[in-house]
Amino acid sequence: MVGKLKEKDFEAIRNSALSRQTPSNLAGAFIICIPLLWLMYFLVFYVAGDATGDVTNYPIFSEMMFICFWFTVVLTVLMIVFTFRYFYMKFQKIQYILAIVLSHALFSVSVYLAALFIIGKSDRVSEDVLMKITLISLSSMVLVVIVTIIRFIILLNKGAYRKGTAKYVQRTEHEGSSYMTIIGVATIGLVVVLEMIISPFGFGGHQRIVIILSFLVVHIMSFVLPVQLVILYCKYRFKSFNFDY
């Protein structure tokens, strides 16, 4: 279904991507985000997980810490490489893949793990309960991604992203409010569900706020991922989504 779409069907997306996500802009973002990436690693494993003190009860914590350390090392090296003009102009698609990985490493994976590790510090939470919370939350995020992708495909087939059409004009006027409505309703529902799940475990006020905000952030990032994947798809399919020298 997506393969039958033409370049004109993605024109509104292309204009947005070309104006905001230039290779030079992404290279600048890499430089800023490298120390942030390591700060998040420290906060997740040495503050939320507390590797040096009251270690979380979350299963395979040490193994996850080891994997995430080397993942952060490799991602850092790749980001440094793609701050040089030769590489980010010649391999723009790879640079954009790195940008997607970076955004979700900072605002999805790190935040999500921090919330799980904090939950794992409660004496009332067993490993079995932790795995159930993980499975439920992951299923919820996957559902958000799937629903958003389906919605995207339907709108693309209706010509909602074609430049100059009546539908495109309508979307430019009401797109922000429509997304805010969806996110607002989903946020209220998610907060209610999270309160029901974590209230029996006796978390303090600040811990409860951190956990709820963390799960909200990762679900919002689940809305963002389909947009990023569509842009990546267009970069591979259409030459106009890439920059020349």
Rank of each mutant, 00 (worst) to 15 (best):
F91R: 12
Q95F: 04
L155D: 09
F107P: 04
S108P: 01
V169T: 06
M40G: 09
G205A: 14
G204V: 10
T22P: 05
H104M: 10
T165I: 02
W70C: 00
A48K: 02
F82T: 00
L190A: 12
K8F: 11
V218G: 00
S110L: 09
F223H: 11
K8H: 03
E7G: 00
G176A: 13
L216N: 07
D50H: 02
T83V: 10
E63T: 11
L116E: 06
I97P: 00
K93C: 01
I198Q: 07
S140L: 07
L156V: 02
A12G: 11
P59A: 09
V77Q: 08
L102W: 08
L135F: 13
S122K: 00
S222Q: 02
I211R: 06
Y112Q: 14
L37A: 09
S137A: 10
G3V: 05
F117L: 15
I182R: 10
V193R: 06
M131P: 06
I133S: 04
V169R: 12
A29W: 03
Y161K: 02
W70S: 08
I118V: 15
I231M: 07
I153R: 09
L113I: 06
R162F: 01
F71V: 04
I153M: 12
V129P: 00
L36M: 07
V101H: 08
Y168I: 04
E11T: 14
V77P: 05
P200G: 01
M221A: 05
A17H: 13
I136S: 11
Y41S: 01
N25Q: 13
A51W: 10
A105Y: 15
F84D: 04
I153Q: 07
K8I: 14
K235L: 03
S240P: 00
Y245P: 00
V230E: 04
L216S: 02
E7V: 02
L106S: 02
P226F: 11
H104E: 13
G205D: 03
V74I: 12
F241W: 04
D54P: 08
P200A: 00
I149K: 07
D123S: 10
Q207I: 15
F61T: 10
I32T: 14
L5I: 08
V44A: 02
A17Q: 05
T76W: 10
Q95K: 11
M89R: 11
V129Y: 13
K93R: 13
S110E: 04
Q170C: 06
F243Y: 13
I183D: 12
S108Y: 14
A48Q: 13
R14A: 00
I188T: 14
V192A: 10
L5V: 09
M131L: 14
S19W: 05
S240M: 03
L225C: 08
L130C: 07
I153G: 00
I212E: 06
L138H: 06
T148I: 06
V218W: 07
V227N: 11
I182D: 11
V144H: 02
A99I: 03
L75M: 10
E173G: 14
I100G: 05
Y58L: 08
T76C: 01
G28K: 03
K8T: 12
A99L: 04
S177C: 09
F66P: 01
V145S: 00
R151H: 02
G120S: 01
S214V: 03
I97C: 06
R162A: 07
T52H: 05
N15R: 15
M196E: 11
S177T: 12
T22M: 12
